[in-house]
Design a protein around this nucleic acid. Structure first.
Lengths: 291, 291
DNA sequence: CGGGACCTTGAAACTTATCAACTGTCGTGG
DNA sequence: CCACGACAGTTGATAAGTTTCAAGGTCCCG
């Protein structure tokens, strides 16, 4: 197997990369240039600079995220059928808008790399963050009913996306039973997750919200074969507060407090979970991973 | 057309009744016995006492709620196919549990009459209300992924339910395209509504939450051909507070304040919207119905 | 008629929001 | 190269809204 060093300041997995380099090594450094010298000894250096969409485009069958994404549970042949309807465009830059609320919806969007936030603008013109999406996760389920986007989506960093035309999924799912089940599962999961967030917002304190949020990210990163205890927040503090129903200042203060308790180590967007058991306690979760 | 007087202290529409009596008259009285004398002049008196499940059982085709429920958009023949898999049991009494979190899920539940709350028990043993369901609405979508109920459901009053076996819906929806679309629509709608609630809980004040909640109920009652401005709350204040992330006392105080402003008239569970425009303003909604 | 559940009201306490100021970083342009 | 402004994050002081605690009232059902 080929090995590669993937150095990326945004530190999120990139599905085409993982497919080309099964033994991909991710170096965690906010300043990737520092590592250039040590990189030369490796078989191949991959950086955001030489990463080109066409070179790294992969099919669903070869995507390392397929077990987390729509093709999960599909057979090889079924996956190929799905793959044929998937459209892969060029990456979105940080801050670029994927779609806006109200625009017609014809496709679901699967994140291939990077990160996205979805949000709404309320009657005062204030942004209202609804969710964050990591590689392998799918946006747009809220718009199927009225066939238009009910929320907007913006790239939080350089983000690759797979477009999945909904009409064709609808047709395919009549013959591919696994696909039909998977669609129901994904929709159902989103409902469950939204309800969990409702409970969070209805009852929990600032600290519990942040704790749960960080644990949620940690678990999602772990599913993506990234470090569960050391990661980079793709979103700003404002977005976190907005999402959790807290003021930015409160988010900042809770981060400071958790650092004081030795639970976290925070440096800007870099987060390290130092005492996972305690963080699980704050989030009212069973601690699954030993630190 | 036959006319009937339907007197029911709980004041929620009953689908079999509506099917038998297209010109159903609903008398709004918390104490229905007072009206007995005036009732004699009508063609038929229907009360909760002489309402028997077998007598009033109806098929989807004849159900007045079918446009709000799963069969919406289905043709006559398609509706008959769906109807064949639907199971209709005897009504649940107030306080009775329809299902509990964790139990295996094989069916979706459509409310035919009455009202239901769904809730979870958190780590402190506290109840966490997730939603309220009125006739024509469907519970259980959150459990499709793991094939088990993710929340419990309890009847808030005498409640009739249609059980819809999910496996059979899955099979039927492969041939009945309208059914497939409708399932996606219903799932998608639930996601959208959950996200709206998220925004409510994340940002709004107590008054805005209650205002939005009441307007939501009003609109749902209106869709069910009941009065939009005068209705009975099927749930306790505790449940409302629990659902909206507020203490009971706060709910009570806001009700009192809205009464003082002349927006509402509240008498126990009886609510009358006196100034709909103002209530819409509080809820940040466009006022659709003139008072 | 009595007991319990539900609702209301008041006063005090607490959490979080708001306002204001300051720091550091980043990219731009002189 | 450095000055500059814009922006994100932090921290402190104050204010506001909501919760909590406590008590009393009402309604309904047995």
């Amino acid at each position: 197997m080929a090995a590669a060093l993937y150095i990326c300041s945004t530190r999120t997995i990139c599905c085409p990369l993982a497919a080309r380099f099964p033994r991909l090594i991710l170096i965690y450094s906010p300043s990737w240039l520092l590592y250039r010298s040590s990189v030369e000894t490796h078989s191949e250096l991959v950086t955001p600079m030489n990463l080109k969409a066409d070179k790294f485009t992969v099919s669903c069958q070869h995507c390392s995220l397929n077990a987390l994404c729509l093709p999960d549970t599909l057979s090889e042949n079924e996956m190929i059928e799905v793959d044929h309807v998937v459209k892969r465009g060029k990456p979105y830059q940080r801050g670029q808008i994927l779609f806006e609320a109200g625009s017609p919806l014809t496709s679901l969007f699967a994140i291939r790399s990077g990160a996205v936030k979805s949000y709404n603008i309320d009657e005062n013109g204030e942004e209202q963050v609804i969710g964050f999406f990591l590689p392998g996760e799918i946006l747009g389920f809220d718009g199927l009913e009225r066939k238009r986007h009910e929320s907007s989506a913006k790239a939080l960093e350089t983000t690759g996306v797979c477009e999945i035309p909904f009409l064709q999924v609808e047709v395919l799912s009549r013959t591919i039973h696994n696909l039909q089940s998977q669609m129901y599962r994904l929709l159902s999961r989103e409902i469950r997750q939204d309800q969990e967030l409702q409970m969070l917002l209805a009852k929990k304190t600032a600290e519990e919200r942040i704790g749960t949020f960080l644990m949620g990210l940690s678990i999602r990163y772990e599913q993506r074969k990234l470090s569960a205890n050391r990661f980079r927040l793709p979103m700003a503090r404002t977005d976190i507060g907005n999402y959790l129903g807290l003021a930015v200042e409160t988010v900042s203060r809770v981060f400071t407090r958790l650092q004081g308790n030795g639970v976290l180590s925070v440096d800007g967007k870099e987060v390290e979970i130092l005492d996972r058991a305690q963080l699980c306690g704050i989030a009212h979760l069973e601690c699954t991973l030993t630190d």
